[in-house]
Structures are given as structure tokens and as C-alpha cells.
């Protein structure tokens, strides 16, 4: 197995030159994105170099507690980011989103590490952390989409929901159509991307594994595992966050409490 040639400072500089193309577009069309582009590119550079630096140390330490700590930290940041992408917020929603994020990604990652990869030790940081990262990154999207659809739907369809409540429906019955729509919104992107993967695009992880000198066959099987894990994590995370949001926006007398919802 060959390993990937390292990218030195000169190579990295040449890679950064690619960004200049983006900057030129921004200037030519007066997009006003110049400043944001510079900030984003610098952030990406610092974050990824720091991540590489930190992971080297975590991998060297081989401490399960440290792996667990890193995974939890990733989950917390992802939970915050998911909530930030919604147009509304409500008390308790931050905790619910983070729990949905951590719960779904931990469960799916652990299942993958223990049952699918069957590696020794199962928590080995060089597998656990990248896999958790892949799952989190995609589950984040599903959770944000599902949550946003739920909050928007509760507001825009309040007439229908309260009409059903007035007829004696439970909150679960009154929001059945809304929950279906929200879960469909949350899970459709991953279903769509599964259908075209390998034809339209070679996914990032598989590309990385091949560039790293890995066997394309093994890379394909890993990618498949990751796709299924993402699909499962997204569904689980979306269900958790959608049901939590619904619980938070009804009170003990089964009243729709839109007064708890505030625009961000």
C-alpha cells in the first residue's frame, strides 16, 4: 500500500491560489463577498490545521476517555450549529437538539465500530473520530432541516392543528401530517444522494481513502457503510428532534404554545 505524498508549505500555497479564482469572480460581479471569503478561507485553514494537529495527539495517546471527550465535543458543536440554522427558537430547544445530535450519532457510530468494523479496540481514535465526524456532519443537515420544518409548520399550520385539537385530537394526531412532512424533508436529501452516489460523484471519504493509497474496493465498502450509517443517523436524529420540538411546543393541557416560539 502506498501512502499519500505530503502537501508541503509550497503546495498548500499553490492550493490557496485556487481561492483567487473565487475572489476574482466576486470582484468581477461585485458580489461583495471578498471579506467573507477571506475570513472563511482563513477559518477553514486554521480549523483544519488545528484539527490535524489535535488528532495527531489524540491518536498517539490512545486513551478511550480522550476519544469520548473529542466525540462529545464534536456533538455539542454540531448541536449548536443545527439550532443556529433554524429561523425560530424556543426554550429548551438547544438542549433537545444537542441530545438528538449526540444520541443519534453516538448510537450509529458505536454500532458501526462494534458490529460492522469489528476492530480491536473498537474505540480506536483513528476510526471512531473520523466516522463520528462523517455521521455528525450529515446528521446535522437532517436535524436542522427537520427542526426548521417542524417549527415553521407549527406556525404556518396552527389553524389546522388547533382545528383538530378543538375536535378532541391529541397533539400527536393533530400534528401527524406535519411530522410526516418534516421527517420527509429531513431524510430526503440522503435518500437522493444514495441514489446517485458513484455515478455523479465519488464521495469525499472514498476519495480520501483512495488518495491515501487505499484499495478502491475496500474504499467503496467503507463508503457504503458510511452512507448507510448516515441515513440511519439522520433518520434517528430527525425523529428525536422533531418529536422533542413538538413536545416543547405543547403544554400539559395539550395546547399549542406558539408563544414559546421566537424568531431568531
Amino acid at each position: 500500500m502506498t501512502t499519500a505524498p505530503d502537501i508541503g508549505p509550497v503546495g498548500l500555497g499553490l492550493a490557496a491560489a485556487l481561492i483567487a479564482g473565487h475572489a476574482l469572480t466576486s470582484m468581477a460581479f461585485q458580489l461583495g463577498l471578498g471579506r467573507r471569503l477571506v475570513v472563511a478561507a482563513v477559518r477553514a485553514t486554521v480549523q483544519l490545521l488545528l484539527l490535524g494537529w489535535a488528532l495527531e495527539r489524540v491518536f498517539a495517546a490512545q486513551q478511550p476517555v480522550l476519544v469520548l471527550g473529542v466525540m462529545t465535543l464534536m456533538g455539542l458543536v454540531a448541536g449548536r450549529e443545527a439550532l443556529r440554522r433554524t429561523t425560530h427558537t424556543a426554550p429548551g430547544l438547544g438542549r433537545a437538539t444537542t441530545l438528538a445530535m449526540l444520541g443519534s450519532s453516538f448510537l450509529v457510530t458505536t454500532y458501526g465500530l462494534v458490529a460492522v468494523l469489528d476492530a480491536e479496540p473498537w474505540w480506536a481514535p483513528e476510526r471512531a473520530i473520523p466516522i463520528m465526524g462523517m455521521i455528525l456532519g450529515n446528521t446535522l443537515n437532517g436535524i436542522a432541516l427537520g427542526l426548521d420544518a417542524t417549527l415553521k409548520g407549527l406556525e404556518s399550520r396552527s389553524g389546522e392543528i388547533e382545528g383538530l385539537l378543538a375536535m378532541g385530537a391529541s397533539p400527536a394526531r393533530a400534528t401527524r401530517a406535519l411530522v410526516q412532512d418534516a421527517l420527509r424533508t429531513a431524510t430526503l436529501p440522503i435518500v437522493n444522494s444514495m441514489a446517485v452516489v458513484g455515478i455523479v460523484s465519488i464521495p469525499g471519504m472514498m476519495t480520501g481513502q483512495i488518495l491515501g493509497g487505499g484499495d478502491p474496493g475496500i474504499a467503496a465498502r467503507y463508503q457504503l457503510f458510511i452512507l448507510f450509517a448516515i441515513a440511519s443517523g439522520t433518520a434517528l436524529g430527525a425523529v428525536l428532534v422533531v418529536l422533542s420540538a413538538r413536545r416543547l411546543l405543547f403544554d400539559d393541557r395539550e395546547r399549542l404554545r406558539l408563544d414559546r416560539l421566537s424568531p431568531r
Binding site: G159, G163, L165, A166, M167, G168, A169, S170
Partner: peptide, 16 residues
């Protein structure tokens, strides 16, 4: 609550 609302039934002016 569900039973209360079946007993004390509101009919809205603009039914959804």
C-alpha cells in the same frame, strides 16, 4: 384535554 374539547366543542369562524 381531548375529552374536554369533545364535550366543549369550538367551531371556528374560518374552518381550516
Amino acid at each position: 384535554p381531548g375529552r374536554w374539547r369533545r364535550q366543549v366543542r369550538l367551531v371556528a369562524q374560518r374552518p381550516p
